[in-house]
Design a protein around this nucleic acid. Structure first.
Lengths: 294, 294
DNA sequence: CTTTTCATGAAAGGATTCTTTCATTATTTG
DNA sequence: CAAATAATGAAAGAATCCTTTCATGAAAAG
């Protein structure tokens, strides 16, 4: 688990792997065997105990115990303690920003999580499905956007910004009147250019989302889902599911990654015809300017 | 390692966090507390045992044991087994580092910008003014949140999430009816506990923001502003201005940093009294669950 | 070849961790 | 308000894990 930014190798205390590496050559036969095993399965050590390592490495429990002692760890507990601090250290180093060292540890962890989440989000744009999603949204006759509870705002902003970039985008809420209009529109099924529904959703809150998803498909609409990493229902309705990790250790889950996904979607759609998009944006700026003067 | 996409999260076996998430709302008090702790420290669970979790979560060992069983794990061992298979499925990893080379240069640049923006945002929480802002929001009698145009959704979500964590939060829009109610309330000026207004704003669009800011101050309300890096007007109305950089080279400016600022604000307020926040969250989970069944 | 040193695991002990049982307390229901 | 139900932790028991001790055998030294 590396950080997004290159992590700084602490000069003084070596990591677990290095320590083993350093002495593996001068160990007695069985201990070396165990050491070797640990090196090869270093990521797995946190899930193990002395006995299991002994078994898998083909040595006795005592040997593992002795080896750990020789490596300078206070037993399995000590090794895990070490692994943990290693993970904590390795997780953040922000481009030499020493200042961040003073950050509250919880926040530091959260920041690291957010950074990873963003990387994950951007990575998803390389997936062929992303391109398909963008094409879907771009080519759709009309686009409906919805979102619930704590991410409803994300969905609303998405619809607003998407509307800057293409025609016939609207936000709709299952509880508002618009649902009627939306449902009643039956001939959409057979239209040449299909409609597209974008659902922004986070798992704990939405029972509505799966329902809407099903309805959308049944009405012959394409479906794009932006959701968090916990989502399990979306896959079965469409392949166009994209995840913005939301757990970051804070009390409230993060909407940053989802927001980024939404931003990227808008940008990608705009990019399909940059000239048009820019023209629209400019016109819009002009309008708001006029409105603002009032 | 693996792709960022989990190949196909089997519908049947949910991840650990999901399982917890799924039932946290309907758990008894202490078990919920433990569950909450596990969610917030999920990355740390592999290093822990039942006793340590119990201690840190403030419950008894037995409670942890029971919770695990209720979640469907065969004790701590079972949970770790689950965590391991989850990791094997690649749901946690992120090492897209190399992969990112294939990213469209424009997006790469944008990603870099977003990362920096987030670091900047988190850095601002170390500023004494941040603490003051948090105190202001926490201590205010009522909190009004507003935002315009393309960040209105951010503001709405902020108000919703803030409302999960403290009383008397409401979103208001200058163009809606609520403004009247808000303006007419003159005696607020002399109240012992002041009201607080949070404005979420990005520069190109809002003429309204400075106006509202002025009105707020004149009405004796505290003012907190979350804005982008281009903002020039806010400083003169309040010192509690925080910036979420929004220019990232994409066609549409980013709302990610602003979103993060909003998230952090909510978390900080919640953190002022975690017990209360947790209780509120839990109650809310329960309610939405009930609503969802409808 | 003998002695010394070292490596190793079996066995037992001790420590830790998990679970079961049960009495107390809180919550819900009638 | 009373009865029933659920939640909770203390205590004890069971299981697991780690270490200590010691006997055995192998390698190294003399």
């Amino acid at each position: 688990m590396k950080s997004v930014f290159s992590s700084h190798p602490d000069v003084e205390d070596l990591g677990v792997a290095e320590r083993i590496q350093a002495i593996v050559g001068e160990l007695p036969r069985q201990e070396a065997r165990v050491a070797q095993y640990m090196l090869l399965n270093i990521d797995d050590l946190v899930f193990q105990n002395g006995a299991s390592i002994a078994r898998k490495a083909g040595a006795s429990e005592v040997t593992v115990s002795r080896l750990l002692r020789r490596l300078g760890f206070r037993g399995m507990a000590g090794l895990k303690r070490e692994l943990r601090t290693q993970r904590d250290e390795g997780s953040i180093d922000m481009s030499g920003d020493r200042e961040l060292d003073k950050l509250d540890p919880a926040l530091k962890h959260a920041l690291d999580g957010e950074l990873r989440a963003l990387v994950s989000v951007f990575s998803q744009t390389m997936d062929p499905r992303w391109t398909r999603a963008v094409r879907t949204v771009t080519g759709a006759q009309r686009v409906f956007v919805t979102g619930f509870q704590s991410v409803r705002g994300v969905a609303e902003d998405l619809s607003r910004r998407l509307a800057l970039v293409r025609d016939d985008v609207r936000f709709f809420s299952a509880h508002d009147g618009m649902l009627g209009e939306w449902v009643g529109d039956v001939e959409a099924r057979s239209a040449k250019r299909k409609d597209c529904v974008i659902i922004v959703d986070v798992v704990p809150y939405a029972q509505e989302a799966p329902l809407l998803a099903r309805m959308s498909r049944e009405a012959g609409r394409q479906l794009v889902v932006l959701t968090d990493e916990l989502c399990h229902w979306a896959q079965s309705h469409t392949e166009l599911v994209f995840h913005g990790p939301s757990r970051n250790g804070l009390i409230i889950e993060s909407t940053v990654a989802l927001t980024s996904l939404a931003n990227l979607l808008v940008d990608a759609v705009a990019r399909r015809d940059p000239a048009v998009a820019e023209r629209r944006m400019r016109r819009w700026h002009k309008i708001t300017r006029k409105l603002n003067v009032f």
